[in-house]
């Protein structure tokens, strides 16, 4: 070889280079999201996105930080609309909100099981559901509470039922340019019941299975996570339980019914069989809790 080797510049399409934007309004944010299309990522709490970038699983060209947008960081409550939690409210802020703790305790408790204290100081419920993980901790209480997801999109701000929100593993109904601005939970007369999460390690772990079993104004609502491609409601079981007294026999029947409504997989965290066993336990305990609450 003779002469010098011409050096090429590395990393022109380098994995980690992106533009950062911090828009001040939803309109501005939407414009950026539309401009970059699939190559834009919304940055909110960042506890998932930044890990994905770090691990080389996401390669956005633009990161749109929505924390500069006014009005997304509040929790509001009134008797007509219920509770609205802004997209940028962190899970720890939720855990300290008196209304949430008093009226929607199950949601506060679910939020409190996400990650560590450090993570909950960053992570938001909007982010938790927008990732559409099948095991998102806050998804099951939201499903059980028939929450509405507030979305800023083509037609301005609209509401989408949480039941239409999750489409598949890591896929929501959101279109390019849509921004979750908050989550609204309707007001109810009474909510009883608990959120349960089964994990390998007690603290800072992902759910092997999680479940919300609550009674809203007399009706049992059951939602489960990590048992299907999306978090789900156990509608058939709920229908079966309607109007029934929760005896041990009824509970056992309900459990068998729930098993017909789920399709868990086996993975590194647990086998399919184990998930089914845990579903049984969580449903049994959840329903018994409702008896105790009466």
């Amino acid at each position: 070889m003779n002469g010098t080797v011409k050096k090429r510049k590395a990393g022109v399409d380098g994995v980690k280079n992106f533009e950062y934007y911090k828009p001040k309004s939803l309109e501005e944010a939407r414009e950026l999201l539309l401009k970059y299309g699939e190559e834009a990522s919304i940055l909110n709490g960042g506890t998932d996105l930044i890990v994905r970038i770090h691990d080389g699983l996401s390669h956005p060209k633009a990161v749109i930080d929505i924390k500069g947008i006014e009005g997304l960081s509040e929790i509001t409550y009134d008797e007509v609309d219920g509770l609205t939690i802004g997209a940028c409210v962190t899970l720890n802020q939720m855990g300290e909100n008196p209304v949430l703790l008093e009226k929607f305790r199950v949601l506060a408790e679910a939020g409190h099981t996400v990650g560590s204290c450090q993570v909950r100081n960053r992570a938001t419920m909007a982010g938790n559901i927008a990732n559409a993980s099948p095991l998102a901790d806050t998804a099951t209480p939201l499903l059980a509470l028939d929450a509405m997801v507030k979305v800023f999109g083509e037609e301005g701000e609209t509401e989408v039922s949480i039941h239409d929100f999750f489409v598949w593993v890591r896929k929501t109904c959101l279109q390019v340019g849509d921004i979750v601005t908050g989550i609204r939970i309707p007001n109810y007369g009474s909510i009883e019941g608990i959120y349960q999460k089964h994990t390998r390690r007690n603290e800072v772990d992902l759910a092997t299975v999680c479940a919300t079993v609550i009674k809203i104004d007399g009706e049992v609502h059951i939602a489960l996570g990590s048992v299907a491609p999306t978090p789900i409601r156990a509608r058939k079981t709920e229908a079966f339980l309607k109007g029934k007294v929760l005896t041990e026999e009824v509970i056992e029947e309900a459990i068998e019914m729930v098993l017909g409504e789920i399709a868990p997989i086996g993975d590194i965290r647990a086998s399919k069989d184990y998930r089914e066993e845990i579903v049984k336990v969580l449903i049994r305990r959840g329903l018994r809790e409702l008896i105790a609450a009466m």
Partner: peptide, 13 residues
């Protein structure tokens, strides 16, 4: 005043 993981925050934030 809140504890956070500095590895999960972009410097620009």
């Amino acid at each position: 005043n809140k504890p956070m993981n500095a590895c999960l925050i972009l410097a620009v934030e």
